[in-house]
């Protein structure tokens, strides 16, 4: 007697938990042969709202973690992903990816996580400065995370695009709300399970699935989102999101980029999501040495 397979339910990831969408809606992902593979949550405005609340709640503590510790956690994600590689590849194969493409997608995703894991305790050394002002003050500029980042993951890339946008954001102490690829959401949800098992505190990464036409404008116009990142979307879509982002002057980035290329990773992806903070403090000189008399 053949065994009945236990099917996987693909839920969304908010605040370190896997709820179903508030809306109760779903859409069906089909295999290349047109067979239904899974019912994926069709997220709503309310899911965006909940995800932003979770991300905001987690942000302060995540930013305050030692940079070294953030690096360890990012590396841990890479480790866990490596361990579950086959599951990701299988999902991609069922969606019609070739073995080679699927393999590359996941390998590069892991490499990218390792790359940004290494940046966590270094980027601030490179972008900070001590500024030699003309008065008796010690003056320095360092980077701070912008806060909560809204991300539209690259639609054409099931995992690499998502990780390429997400990793530099969280490496820099931001928390994120990610709208996964609409066409390829399975890897995104499975990746959430990896995150869940990787010491990533709940709320640091929140992943929503489903069509963008409701979630993306909601996220782009949300007043408690500090910056917005999209990649490889249409010019019209980008412009409309940019307009959505104006009201609280969100920093807006739209990358037109091939995530498979070597130059699709780098310090500037972290830097884009950092604010420069400059601090002044007087320097006391000894005795009356500086007096003009």
């Amino acid at each position: 007697m053949s065994r009945i397979e236990v099917l996987k339910t693909y839920k969304v990831y908010i605040g370190g938990q896997f709820p179903r969408t508030e809306s109760g809606r779903y859409h069906t992902i089909t295999s290349k042969k047109g067979e239904p593979l899974a019912n994926v949550c069709l997220c709503s405005r309310k899911d965006v709202r909940n995800a932003v609340v979770a991300a905001r709640k987690a942000q302060g503590a995540w930013a305050e973690r030692a940079a070294f510790n953030r690096g360890q956690i990012l590396y841990r994600i890479a480790e866990m992903l490596e361990g579950r590689k086959s599951q990701f590849i299988e999902e991609l194969l069922s969606l019609g990816f070739t073995q080679k493409n699927a393999q590359t997608e996941i390998d590069l995703s892991i490499e990218r996580l390792v790359y940004y894991a290494g940046w966590c305790d270094k980027y601030n050394q490179i972008v900070s400065s001590v500024n030699p002002v003309s008065s008796a003050h010690f003056n320095f500029s360092t980077c701070e995370p912008m806060g909560v980042i809204g991300i539209i993951a690259d639609n054409n890339s099931p995992l690499l695009g998502l990780i390429s946008s997400l990793a530099p954001a969280i490496a820099g102490g931001n928390t994120v709300v990610v709208l996964s690829s609409v066409d390829y959401p399975l890897n995104a949800v499975t990746f959430a399970e990896v995150l869940h098992a990787s010491d990533v505190p709940g709320g640091v990464v929140n992943i929503l699935t489903g069509s963008l036409h409701e979630t993306a404008p909601t996220l782009a116009s949300h007043m408690d989102i500090n910056a917005f990142v999209a990649s490889n979307i249409s010019h019209e879509f980008s412009t409309s999101l940019q307009l959505n982002a104006v009201d609280n002057l969100k920093r807006f980035f739209h990358y037109t980029i091939d995530w498979n290329q070597q130059n699709s990773q780098g310090l500037h992806f972290i830097g884009d999501l950092q604010e420069v903070k400059t601090t002044w403090h007087p320097i006391e000189q000894i005795g009356g040495a500086t007096s003009s008399y």
Binding site: S135, A136, H137, P282, I283, E284, Q285, T290, S291, S292
Partner: peptide, 14 residues
């Protein structure tokens, strides 16, 4: 007393 602050105040008086 912050010396640099005092120096600024004095400079302003001057």
């Amino acid at each position: 007393v912050d010396k640099v602050g005092v120096e600024e105040r004095v400079a302003r008086i001057q």
